[in-house]
Nucleic acid binder design. Structure first.
Length: 583
RNA sequence: CGGAGCGUAGCUCAGCCUGGCUAGAGCACCUGCUUUGGGAGCAGGGGGUCGCAAGUUCGAAUCUUGUCGCUCCGACCA
């Protein structure tokens, strides 16, 4: 391809509104153009990279035995009503009515495709002989994001690979799941991404039933908990906390007396600690939840955050949510911000770390009042079996596996594998007859990859001051030919010949045939980040040599003009095998 | 959905506070000449409903109100 014949609108300056590196660089390098908040055009270069990522995903899905099909983005709302997900998705589900002859049809744009694919399987699969099977597609998904942001990281329309496995048993599901897990590792390896597979919230099946594939990046929206010592990794919702350090476990032997103090109009932990001159860790906060319709109270150290998943599992509730202000007032007889454990008549749970807080500051269940000097056992009690790990892990907490210190890292979720169980097959009647003529429900798994996020997370983690540093696998073009003077005939002859020979050898090559100064060509080459740049002209050509430079290398090297095409093709082939080469 | 900010040429921005000649600069674009290894120089040229609407005023990019769009922080995220 010739530069002059395609569309590559590079920008010297950072457009207003772009903040994070991947967004800035995708715009400046002419990969994307924003059409509205959360919707982008992929320009020729961006589209090439996206298609390369897609091709890798497709290749590995096929290798893992998954079968590609294509479902419509347009779906009837009734399909979503059958699984109750109209409510579950809420405003995220883009849906609308259209006129069709003399009636109205209510449609939804698919945010994912469990319903459509399960309905398909329910219609055509009826025997264990047809199972297991894993179906996948690569398709545009639609979600009405509350707040699109970070360039292509969070958009309302995005390209997703979604796969669904259908099995006859939990053991068979585990095998399907493992195949997908391994395929994901191969995909992200080939893309040159540094990723972590972390344990994630597991849903109905429990146990080891969900993993998220995370790319560690400072601008990631997710937080993963990582132990550098043993490799334990989990997302914040799921991360367990190891047993408390022995030194902190001194029994709460407080000396102070319980004393009611005035805290007028001051309800938050931060405000109260400031007013009373104590540390948040000296406080115990009391959160009121409603579990399956019944209110309960949870005690946490002031500087800790509740983990609703852990709490739900500890309490054994199906549904758990923070209580409304009305319920809180009814239960505590005080406005929000003044709840405390003393004299509360509802079920009381506590995070393990609460036991170590002596002479604590707590709410007094009375407007504008707190207690100081509160002590567990003397002033209030929590049943021994109501102590549990109920909070989010924090930096410095003990690793549940090895006891070393945990670290919190920001990350971008690029993939998710999940054992679904029978939620959708039950709702949509996907059953099969087993070899003993029993009718049973098909067991499902689902597996997603955000294709756009592969690009964004790669750029987020592989760039420098000059621009993107593409790995060979996803670069829009593998080789850039840069003739320095397009008016010079011998230079252009060499460039044209190399272009044709490399193309014939299966190398993606772009010829910068613009009549531009060398500086402009170099800046654009670095900004876009072509892995291999070949300069034709100047001193080296007179000596029968070409100058080549890897994007991640600091210095160029010279190769003989003689046999250059073969040499370059060989270099490209080698670099394709090593997706993670670094500067 | 709460909080904050920004909308002036394709891009980055000045002008607005304190209303007043024909609305500006740099980059980009077009023409010519020069230049040619890290975003060139000179000369000339094209391009703007100042987001939109209403209001105040003799007069609005500028003041007021409303509205739309975009961005950031937070909440939310099967």
């Amino acid at each position: 391809m010739r530069w002059s014949q395609t569309l590559i609108p590079t920008m010297k300056e950072t457009p207003e509104g772009a903040e994070i590196p991947s967004h800035v660089l995708m715009l400046r390098a002419g990969l994307i153009q924003q059409v509205m908040a959360g919707a982008y055009t992929y320009l020729p270069l961006g589209w090439r990279s996206l298609r390369k990522a897609e091709a890798i995903v497709r290749d590995e899905m096929d290798r893992a035995g998954a079968v590609e099909l294509h479902m419509p983005a347009l779906t009837p709302i009734t399909l979503w009503e059958r699984t109750g997900r109209v409510d579950a998705f809420g405003d995220v589900l883009i849906n609308f009515k259209v006129r069709r002859a003399n009636r109205q049809v209510h449609l939804a744009l698919g945010p994912t495709h469990e319903e459509v694919v399960t309905d398909l399987v329910a219609r055509f699969v009826s025997s264990y002989r047809q199972l297991p099977i894993t179906l996948y597609q690569i398709q545009t998904k639609f979600r009405n994001e509350e707040r699109p942001r970070f360039g292509v990281l969070r958009t309302s329309e995005f390209l997703m690979k979604d796969a669904y496995s259908f099995d006859t048993s939990v053991e068979s599901l585990a095998a399907s799941y493992d195949k997908m897990y391994e395929a994901y590792c191969r995909i992200f390896d080939r893309c040159g991404l540094e990723y972590l597979a972390v344990e994630a919230e597991s849903g109905p099946i429990g146990g080891d039933a969900s993993h998220e594939f995370m790319v560690l990046a400072d601008n990631g929206e997710d937080v993963v908990v990582h132990c550098a010592a043993c490799g334990y990794a989990a997302n914040l919702e799921r991360a367990e906390i190891g047993a408390a350090k022995a030194s902190a476990a001194k029994a709460a032997a407080g000396s102070a007396a319980l004393k009611k103090v005035d805290t007028p109009k001051v309800g938050s932990i931060e405000q109260v600690s400031k007013l009373l001159g104590c540390q948040p860790a000296q406080m115990i906060k009391t959160l009121i939840y409603v579990a399956d319709g019944k209110p309960l109270a949870v005690l946490l150290r002031g500087d800790h955050d509740a983990n609703e998943g852990k709490l739900r599992r500890a309490v054994g509730a199906a549904k758990l949510e923070l209580a409304s202000p009305e319920i809180i007032e009814q239960v505590t007889k005080a406005p929000v911000g003044f709840a405390g454990p003393v004299g509360l008549a509802i079920g009381l749970w506590a995070d393990r770390d609460v036991a170590a807080v002596a002479d604590a500051v707590i709410g007094a269940n009375e407007a504008d009042k707190h207690y100081t000097g509160a002590n567990l056992g003397r002033d209030f009690t929590v049943a021994a079996d109501h102590f549990a790990d109920l909070r989010n892990a924090g930096a410095g907490d003990a690793c549940p596996r090895c006891g070393q210190s945990l670290a919190l890292r920001h990350a971008i979720e690029v993939g998710h594998v999940f054992k679904l169980g029978t939620k959708y097959s039950d709702a949509l009647g996907a059953k099969f007859l087993d070899d003993t003529e029993q009718q049973r429900t098909i067991i499902m798994g689902c597996y997603g990859i955000g294709i756009n996020r592969i690009l964004a997370s790669l750029i987020e983690t592989r760039h420098d001051e000059q621009g993107i540093v593409w790995p060979m696998a996803l670069a829009p073009y593998e080789v850039l030919l840069a003739p320095l003077n397009v008016a010079q005939e011998d230079v252009m002859q060499v460039a044209e010949r190399l272009h044709n020979e490399l193309s014939a050898a299966g190398v993606d090559v772009l010829l910068d045939d613009r009549d531009q100064r060398a500086g402009v060509k170099f800046k654009d080459a670095d900004l876009i980040g072509f892995p291999l740049r070949v300069v034709i002209g100047g001193r080296s050509l007179k000596e029968g040599k070409l100058e080549i430079k890897w994007r991640w290398a600091s210095e160029p090297e010279l190769i003989p003009l003689e046999g250059a095409a073969e040499k370059l093709a060989e270099l490209v082939r080698h670099a394709r095998e090593n997706p993670r080469h670094k500067s």
